[in-house]
Nucleic acid binder design. Structure first.
Lengths: 211, 211
DNA sequence: ACCATAATGAGACAATCGTCTCATGTAAAG
DNA sequence: CTTTACATGAGACGATTGTCTCATTATGGT
């Protein structure tokens, strides 16, 4: 059941789905958060059809936001990137930062939606084809650490990757801006300091328990 | 204008407001997220009145959630706490962790609401008396680092506090559970490792730029 | 070309949300 | 006690969400 076979008229469905996401992304760029009816209208599709493709308005907007904003490892570390893990992780951080500030509104909406959906109940995952929260962070961190992976114990490497995920994601941005109310410059300084501290700690010969 | 003077019949107002929060907190404990009408009914108050006290249903639920769940520095470091900053920060982390797992649903709702509110527009802060996001994290971190504050440069101390805020808050929990999908044990291990790494890095004699 | 089937459109429906108005009761000031 | 200002209750209103039904298209296999 993994691949239910491209049965029936899957082209039409793909096109409709794509149109909806396209329209939603376009409207999201305007900064506001469109209602489902607006998206449906913009996609030249009826409201009912939109609901046939996405279980809720949030689900639609979330996927649209993800379509808009996603750097990928290959282009980020195309050629001229060295092997220094600190420099490479900082590069990831910078790319993610740009991506976030460019799409702050949609991303906030995405985070909020994911947060709420999980809080509700079993009804949240009606179809089962919608993951609670996609993870585009780990692949980037993996790529950043790849050249220097020999410098770490395997266990340490895993710990480091998880810890770095705390520092370079959207949530870090939220903490800095909403909770601590730091200006962008200070936030960036702290982030870079933390990245270096964590990587160097992971590289240092094991102290007590492997961590 | 800081204290507009307890004018008029402020007692009645305080009581009504308290009743609303009380009712909301009670309903929230049930796991579901009550509608504003449910809260108003439970508080024996009309819907209109509820809206007179809180600009939105989220605002009401958020404050209710905060009332429920809040450890404070004094009781946390009552007497028997040593001076070791790592141990003390880990103690804060543990307390926060307990608090979070006990009130996951309300907290998620609070985060989501804060996220959305800021994304909207100037209309979000109608009265100005509702801060975008309260910060109960910094005081706890301050208290944890207080006895050892001499070991750090002032600038380093600030950086460390900000970095720690990334690791021990609700957001860290969200990253570990939703994004990385780590089990609680692993998440805890990574958290403690990161806490130690950051504190030790801050204590180490300055390397290059002050950070 | 024909037709069964799948996708869509149109719209009714109930539930909430947030705003507004108007009437009423009640606390507080004289 | 009386009066007045304030808090409240009741409910209408439009907007949005999500579900449902039924009629119409339009696609793809034959």
């Amino acid at each position: 059941m993994a691949k239910p076979a491209p049965t029936g008229r899957w082209k039409q469905r793909r096109r409709t789905r794509h149109d909806l996401l396209q329209a939603a992304a376009r409207l999201l760029k305007g900064g506001r958060t469109p209602s489902l009816e607006e998206v449906a209208d913009a996609a030249l599709v009826s409201r009912a059809t939109a609901y046939r493709y996405f279980p809720s308005i949030e689900a639609l907007l979330v996927e649209a936001a993800l379509d808009v904003a996603t750097p990928d490892p290959e282009t980020l570390f195309a050629a001229d990137a060295g092997d220094d893990p600190v420099a490479r992780v900082e590069r990831v951080e910078a790319a993610l930062y740009r991506m976030i500030v460019d799409n702050e509104a949609p991303l906030r909406l995405m985070l909020a939606s994911a947060l709420q959906r999980r809080a509700r109940g079993p009804a949240g995952e009606a179809n089962g084809d919608t993951p609670i929260r996609q993870n585009r962070r780990t692949p980037l961190i993996d790529a950043a650490l790849a050249p220097a992976r020999h410098r770490f114990t395997p266990a340490r490497l895993e710990t480091l990757k998880a810890a770095l995920a705390l520092v370079i994601g959207t949530e870090a941005m939220v903490v800095f801006r909403d909770v601590l109310q730091l200006d962008d410059q200070t936030a960036n300084r702290v982030k870079r300091w933390a990245i270096r501290a964590l990587i160097e700690a992971a590289a240092r010969p094991a102290r007590s328990k492997g961590g």
